[in-house]
Each structure stands twice: as C-alpha cells, then as structure tokens.
Design a protein around this nucleic acid. Structure first.
Length: 274
DNA sequence: AAGAGATGCAACCGCTATGGC
DNA sequence: CGCCATAGCGGTTGCATCTCT
C-alpha cells in the first residue's frame, strides 16, 4: 500500500487556491473529466498534487455542490444520521445531496456538537449526558463504538418492523402516540422479534474476546451483524451502500421528526430489557 | 480603536481499501 | 501472492474573520 509522495517533496504548491487555479481546474475537468487525479495537475497546468486537486474539486468546485447555510431540516438529518452512522461523514453526506463530507464534518464540529452538548446530550453517544451509573440507559454498551452498533441495530430493527408492517399490512402501530408496550410486544412476537431473539442468543455465546468491535468490523469484509445473524435476509453490513440498507435508512428517516432520535434510546432500552 | 480570544471553514495529513500488474 | 499506485476517508491544522473587552 504505497503512499503518494508528499507535495513538499515535489515542490508543489500548498495552501489556499487562487481563482486562477480554480479556473484552470474547472476548465480542464469540464473538457476532459478528471481521469487520473495523479496526472491531472500536470495536464491542467497546475502546480498542485492530485490529491489537492481532487479535494478542491469535490469539496468546492463541483457544479452540484450546494453552498450556503444548512437548513434546520438538514441539521436534524445530520444529527439523526450521526446517531446511526457515527463519524462516517461520507456516508452521512451521501444522504444530503449537494453537501460534502468536509462541510458536514465542519458543521458537526462547530455547531451541532455544541448544540447537543447544550441540550445535555452526549454528541458521541446521543444519550443524555446527565445519565448516571444507575439509570437504565447505562445498560447500553459502554464504548461509543459498540453503542453505535447497538443504536444501528435498533434502527435496523425499527426499519425492519416498518418494512414488515408494510408488506404484511399488519397494523403495527408506531411507537409514537400508542403505548410503547403494545408496540414492542407486537414487535417482539413478530418475525423481527424472533430474529432478534436469535441474535441475543448468539451474542450470549460469544466469548468476551470475540465481542463485536468496530475495528473488527472495519477489517472484515463481512459485517459483524451478519456474523451473528445468519438468519437475517437483509444486508448485515453497516455500510449504507446497499439498496436494502438504503430503504431501511429511508424508513428510519421517515420517522416523525419531532421525535428525533429519541426512539433509539427507547428502542435501546427495550433491547436491553430483553 | 485596538488587541485578545473564539469561531468557522478550507485545506492538509496520514491512514486504509481497492485494483492492477 | 505480494507489491505498488491510486482513490477515498476521517482527523487535524492553520488562517481569516468575528466578537468581546
């Protein structure tokens, strides 16, 4: 896995881009496409490294980029997606047309993180930061990565429940407005609940050294969820590229916005109650 | 008005994944 | 199978601008 030589070593320009450089880059890409980023600077007459050109194009010059302040809907969406995906800015950006991962990352680090902290919510876990060692929320996994896994799994279950609900025309009520207990009991008795019970059993048989871990997930092409859920027919990957994941995510995002991500906590509590 | 500190954003750095040879 | 080139990603930095005193 060789790495491209640093721009310094090649005497290439660094720092802010000038309008002239921007023009050269845009002109070249409009005429020829970017092709190989490595060879682009030379061909376009730029004293920049390919990496810098690619970044400038993807984060600033691309014609489909939507500049300007984020709307409250976009911010809400970013928060919801972050609760599910964690710091996977590219995956989050893919759900916000015209927004770049860099822009979302900056938005998160400068605005949303503080906003959540101000609201008493831990921006990493999306749990109330005031929760102490005795509350039910502390039954959630302790590390942020595993908590995200649990939240993601909860979100998946919610989405699966909605899919199942749609397909079978069963009128499983939304947890909003109806009793949570009714909803969860129905869900627990459904196929989804069965799937999850299997998961729970499987997890209990996993030795501590084999606990689900983000790093392991990353290094493995198979997903952690898939590993313990052989019965699941939906994609177990926590990547959001698969179409089934996309539809599940969409279902998740369809969740009433005034409820934000609170259902995750609700579902998380239920998950641990089981 | 001026200086200090805070904030926001563009760009860079270093790492990993992937594909070709 | 291993090496290399490239693309893409997330974390971090640096600087311009804003706000406060």
């Amino acid at each position: 896995m060789g790495r491209a030589p640093c721009c310094d070593k090649k005497g290439l320009k660094k720092g802010p881009w000038t309008p002239d450089e921007d023009e050269k880059l845009v002109d070249y890409i409009n005429k020829n496409g970017h092709g190989s980023w490595r060879s682009l600077p030379k061909l376009a007459g730029l004293l920049r490294c390919g990496k810098s050109c690619r970044l400038r194009w993807t984060n600033y010059l691309r014609p489909d980029i939507r500049r300007g302040p984020f709307t409250s809907e976009e911010e809400k969406l970013v928060i919801q997606l972050h609760a599910i995906l964690g710091n996977r800015w590219a995956a989050i950006a893919s759900q916000l047309p015209g927004r770049t991962d860099n822009e979302i990352k900056n938005l998160w680090n400068t605005h949303l993180k503080k906003q959540l902290l101000h609201m008493g919510i831990d921006p990493q876990t999306h749990e109330p930061s005031s929760s102490t060692s005795n509350g039910p929320q502390n039954r959630l996994p302790s590390s942020p990565s595993t908590r995200h896994m649990a939240q993601w799994e909860s979100a998946r279950l919610e989405a699966e429940a909605r899919l199942s609900c749609r397909e079978s025309h069963l009128s499983i009520p939304s947890p909003v407005g109806k009793s949570d207990g009714d909803f969860f009991i129905q869900l627990w008795n459904s196929e989804v609940g069965e799937t999850f019970r299997n998961l729970d059993k499987a997890e209990k048989t996993v030795s501590p050294s084999n606990q689900i871990d983000d790093a392991e997930c990353k290094s493995s092409s198979k997903s952690c969820v898939e590993d313990v859920r052989p019965g699941s027919d939906s994609c177990g990957s926590n990547e959001m590229e698969d179409s089934s994941d996309q539809s599940e995510l969409q279902l998740l995002l369809d969740f009433p916005s005034d409820n934000d991500v609170s259902f995750l906590d609700c579902f998380g509590s239920w998950l641990h109650f089981c």
